[in-house]
Nucleic acid binder design. Sequence first.
DNA 1: TCTCATGTCGATACACTGTATTGATTCGTG
DNA 2: CACGAATCAATACAGTGTATCGACATGAGA
Lengths: 230, 230
Amino acid sequence: MTVWDRPEPPLRPVPLDRERIVAAAIALADEGGLEAVSLRKVAARLNAGPMRLYGYISTKEELFDLMVDEVQTEILPEEQPGDWREALRTLALRTRQTALRHEWLADLLGGRPALGPNGLAVTEAKLAALDGLADIDTVMRAVETVSAYFTGAIRREIANLRAERVTGLSKRDWQRASGPHVTKMLATGRFPALAKAVHDGTDVDAETSFTTGLEWVLDAVATRLTPPSA
Amino acid sequence: MTVWDRPEPPLRPVPLDRERIVAAAIALADEGGLEAVSLRKVAARLNAGPMRLYGYISTKEELFDLMVDEVQTEILPEEQPGDWREALRTLALRTRQTALRHEWLADLLGGRPALGPNGLAVTEAKLAALDGLADIDTVMRAVETVSAYFTGAIRREIANLRAERVTGLSKRDWQRASGPHVTKMLATGRFPALAKAVHDGTDVDAETSFTTGLEWVLDAVATRLTPPSA
DNA sequence: TCTCATGTCGATACACTGTATTGATTCGTG
DNA sequence: CACGAATCAATACAGTGTATCGACATGAGA
């Protein structure tokens, strides 16, 4: 093979760093969901071979960890509001909004401990909101409870959202009218309470459902805080 | 190739049904986690070719749906206790226990709407527990909130459990002593509340954490129920 | 300025995945 | 007994995460 047949060597490889890798991965996930993220595709976006990434991460799971940590920056508000309740509410709502912007986050939420810098910062913010308002153990239980609530609520919301997308129908309409399976099941009479709920319940939007439950949980937390000493 | 070279045809294929397929898949997942479930391995356990499964499911996701629905039978208690609170608590605790028996459930919990017969039965049980104790919309909010809580709590618990397994240390010990990364981060002083929590907080076991939060949420629900008419 | 060691990079390779297609084989039915 | 339909397995394909390894550009030392 002569020189003329051989292509010029590729230009010096673009320098890589985790930031660029994670950004590429997030872009892919935003476009096509988590399953669209493959090391080959991420590398391709950066004009690199797949193996190149293994200098920066040692496993695909680590890439996911980095992605989660990265979007946590969107969760922390610029300034922490004063009231503990407002602070926790804001963190919960911003987590939800972030998950709506990056739906793949719902698949990862709660899946692994969030130990990256931004994850720790979010945890810090949660704990700081309640700092001094009760003994530490109560504060920890409170943070765990609120976080567990919104993790679960967000997962369910995104799950429903996806289901609605594939059928093109709202969950309610779908159950009531054209979801043949559920309709048939309800018709069996084996699920009276469920049938009543589907039939008589108001089809409340996801945000209302989320905030309603959130306020309930925050109420529960409020009861446990030590009353401000008189 | 003569008859003598050719092996006898395989015995008539073992008849298949979804039950056996799902059982095989669950066994695999119990042993090696969700990622150990491949259509090839499931089929192999049933002495069948991979393609055979596509007569019973049309996608791997559907197999997961069936697996989730199957283990829901372990969640429903034999008899429904009388008290709404007891009923919801039992459902939550049994979901947790089921997830501890089948850790892969944590990966799937809340990931897709549970519309199988057993999933519907569990939802029915939740709704039935509160039936008549408040208007339907309140009942639905209550069920959503409790479910969201324990979905998130279970996910976190399993996530921590796995993390502990790979390091061989309790989360607390690990953070305090030998988790170099977290230790270093805490040492930066950027996370004072977190540092205090790790340092001064009691290392409560997972079950206590779970039930504590659960009772809080149940308290919150209680507040919303219409007081028994005098 | 030349040589050599070092370490980075990418090509290749491997074992495996979910699933479409296709061809053989069996069975029920006329 | 023959044929049509249905069932099933083999093959195939495009993709996956990651181990291995050879080439090559780069920096250090002489």
